[in-house]
Each structure stands twice: as C-alpha cells, then as structure tokens.
Amino acid sequence: MSRLSVTGTAEIDFPVDIFKVTVTIRANAPSSGEVIQSGKKKTEQFLALMQKNLGIEPDRFQLDSDSVNEDYSSRNSYNYTKRITLDMKAELSALSKLTSLLEELSNVEYDVAFYLSDEADKEKQVIDAAINNSREKAEMIASSLGKKIEGVEEIRFEHPSDARYRALAKAACADGCNSLETMLKLPTKTISKSIYIDWIME
C-alpha cells in the first residue's frame, strides 16, 4: 500500500438569485425639525409610489434609522438621510422596472448588489467538483502504474479557513458531484476551490 498526493481544482460561475437594492433618500431644510418632517414625507411618498407603480408592499422594505446632520458649509441648513433596502428575486425585468422608476425620482440614490441565497450549497458543489478532479487524476496515475485507488488518507485545503469543509469533503468523495445549470443573462458569482488529497493506492 502506498500514498499518492494529488491536487484537485474547480471553479464554477453561479447565477445569482437575490438582488439587494439599497435606496438612499435625502432632504434639506433650515432646521432639524423641518428636515425630519420633510425626510419622513419623502419616505412615505417613496413607499406609496413603490406600492402603486410596482406592487411592492411597504413591509417588504427594511428601513434604517433617520440620520440628521447640520450642514456647516451652509448657514441654517440641515441634511436628512434615510436608507431603505429591498431583497428581491433575481429577475432582470423586475429590476429594470424598479431602477427605471428610481432614476426618475429626485433626491434619491440607489445601489444594487447581488447574492446567492444558498451559497453554502454552491460551495459544496465546487468541493465535489474539486474532489472529482483530484480523483480522476489520481486514478489515471495509478492506472499507469498498474495500481488502483482504494481510499482517502487525508484531505487538505489551499486556505486554512477552508478547514471547516474537511468532513463535508470526505462525505463528498463518496457522493459524487452535482451538475450545474447556467443562466448567462444574470450576474454570476465565481466560487473556486483547491483541495489536496492523499489517496491510498494499492
């Protein structure tokens, strides 16, 4: 019995499934009381507009606390800021309608971020693929030597932080690798893994 160390690598692009839209509402007024009143009114108008034009209920938005600061560059001037976030299903048509409406509004800024709701599952798929890559290379080398791969002695990851996947990787050695369906129209997130496996060869 001997040991064969083989590196396995995998990189997969996953289409995101969550859009996180952050909207910033701003207002300006001569006093703190007036600017808060103005800012709250703009916020209420914004939520009503989202409900009327896009059918997005107000309770779907997450509202941060009001922020009021005195503008020292201008006498008797106060600035109001309110950040509102919305998590929505990654549908480009829905996002386009939302951003088109936001661009028509004054004193409103927005930003869009992209996420995977099941990133842990996607990482497992990449680990599976990296293990399969290592196993295929190990079997090819073993075959050329007239031997066979009989099992796994040790698994190591490229980064120490990946140690939490060690048990998962050992289970994946037996489970095989999941397939991936790509959706090229959506933004993607790339997940890559490198794994070092000491295979038992006989």
Rank of each mutant, 00 (worst) to 15 (best):
S65G: 09
S74K: 11
Y72G: 03
L63R: 06
L54V: 11
M50V: 00
D64L: 04
D71I: 11
R75Q: 15
A48S: 15
E70K: 14
E70C: 04
L63G: 04
G55M: 05
D71C: 01
S67M: 01
Q51A: 08
N76W: 01
L47S: 03
L54G: 14
L63E: 06
N53D: 15
F61V: 07
G55P: 12
Y78K: 05
L47P: 04
E57T: 06
S65V: 13
L54I: 12
A48Y: 11
M50Q: 01
E57Q: 07
N53G: 05
D59C: 12
N53S: 10
S74T: 15
R75V: 15
G55S: 12
S73P: 00
N76M: 04
D66G: 00
F61A: 01
S65H: 02
L47V: 05
F61D: 04
L63F: 12
M50R: 00
L63N: 01
V68Y: 00
M50N: 03
Q62Y: 05
N69Y: 10
M50H: 02
S65Q: 08
S73I: 04
E70S: 06
I56H: 01
A48G: 03
E70I: 12
E70H: 05
K52S: 02
Q62T: 06
N76Q: 06
D71H: 05
L49K: 02
V68K: 03
P58I: 04
R75C: 09
Q62A: 13
Y78M: 05
L49R: 04
Y72P: 04
S65W: 01
L63A: 03
F61E: 01
Q62W: 00
Q62M: 04
N53K: 13
N53V: 11
N69W: 02
A48F: 10
P58W: 09
N79Y: 12
S77E: 02
S73K: 00
K52Y: 07
S73T: 07
K52V: 07
E57N: 07
G55H: 11
D64K: 08
S73G: 14
M50L: 10
Y72V: 14
S67P: 08
S77F: 08
E70F: 02
N53I: 05
N53R: 08
R60H: 14
Y78S: 06
Q62K: 09
K52A: 10
L47F: 09
